[in-house]
Amino acid sequence: MSELSRRWTGTLVIVLAVALAGCAAQRTAAPGSRPDVSDPTRLVGMWKVTGAVADNGNIVGLTPSELIIYRPCGELMAAWNADVHGSFLGDISGSSGDCDPLAPVAWLEKTAAYRLEDGNAALLDVEGRTVALLVPASEPPRPDRESFAITDEFRRSFADTATLPSNLRPAGRAELVGRWVPVGGVQASPKPAHLELRGDGRYAAWDGCNGSGGGWTVKPAGTVLATAGVSTLIGCDNVPVGQWLSSARLAGFDGETLVLFDPQAAELGRLRRAKPAASSTGRSNSVTRGEAHVSASVPSNGSGGDRSAD
């Protein structure tokens, strides 16, 4: 090979190397971005439910403030929450007409995630299986009431979260299931505050005098999402464990201690796994399914009768 040929060959190798490096840089996500980021604001609108037996063909309205299922009997209203990592939760909180807010809405209760595809929204369970498909629908049945305006504040509410502190490991779904109690402090309530995370994606919280509940889910990186269910409103010196969870966007473990963080990675609270109780002297007080599936244990001298959520 001549000297000139060797020079051209060397030049070609360098050019190819630079070109490949440039392609790789284009494929690499920009600093601070994540490849699994979705836009929850695209869920706002009118949708037709397909693939769900109970509501197949029915219309669902997703406004910035609530989720509405339109049925022949009337309407079911639900709180909903989502994040940029594909998590989605909905929680029935009321009804109109003859619709029963206590009746299970299986597809909504199973939904833990969403995926936007070809203008549709696929609702997924915790295993990633499709529960229902939402396809675009026409104008809302009640255009005088629903507002689909997306404000800057609404957009900011879905801003990507910070990351867990490096000394914590992300919390996984399996190890979160169970009962948790706040770390430290002395609680005056006969029934101390606790947080019960169920394997079916529901939770029940008791802050010392008020019960609350809703849905919860977590991603492998420790990003957590929960709905804020209806709560009783008794004033007391409490530990707001339910509010910790509904405000949390990150969950990690510091050793055996569960730590919850807000979207800016500010610590909300710490919990430890509760020791199994040898016996129970209280009674169960459960707010109905239509009141956000609240379930809490209250002292035997507490007010209110027994009401089952299931």
Rank of each mutant, 00 (worst) to 15 (best):
V105L: 12
T163C: 04
E139M: 06
P190C: 13
T151P: 10
R173I: 02
S95Y: 05
D91H: 09
L123A: 06
F88R: 08
R129S: 08
S96D: 12
A193S: 13
V135L: 10
A78P: 02
D160K: 13
P104Q: 09
R155P: 03
P182A: 07
W107G: 08
G90W: 04
P192A: 04
T151H: 10
E175N: 11
D98F: 12
L76Y: 03
P192Y: 07
E175H: 10
S189Q: 13
A113I: 00
T130I: 13
K191R: 15
D200W: 04
R129M: 07
L108W: 02
L168V: 06
G97H: 13
P136F: 12
F154K: 07
R129W: 05
P192C: 03
C99V: 09
P143T: 12
A188L: 15
V177N: 01
S157N: 04
P136W: 10
N81C: 08
N81F: 00
V105H: 11
R173E: 03
M77V: 14
A113F: 07
E75G: 00
G172M: 12
L197R: 07
E117Q: 13
Q187A: 09
R202C: 06
P190F: 09
S95A: 15
L176R: 03
S93M: 13
T130F: 05
P141D: 14
D91E: 14
S157T: 02
G119E: 07
P170Q: 01
L134A: 08
T111N: 04
I92M: 12
H194I: 02
A122H: 14
R142I: 10
A79Q: 04
E175A: 07
E75M: 09
G172E: 09
P182V: 08
T163H: 07
E139P: 00
R169S: 05
A162H: 01
F158V: 02
P136L: 09
G86R: 08
A137R: 03
H85D: 15
Y114A: 03
H85W: 14
H85Q: 15
T161L: 00
L195D: 07
W80K: 02
S166W: 00
T130Y: 08
T130C: 03
V181A: 12
P192I: 05
P143W: 06
L102G: 15
S93P: 01
W80A: 06
R155D: 05
F148A: 10
A137M: 00
S96W: 07
D83E: 11
A162E: 02
E146T: 14
E196I: 05
P170F: 04
A193I: 00
W107F: 15
R142L: 15
S189P: 01
S157R: 07
P190L: 05
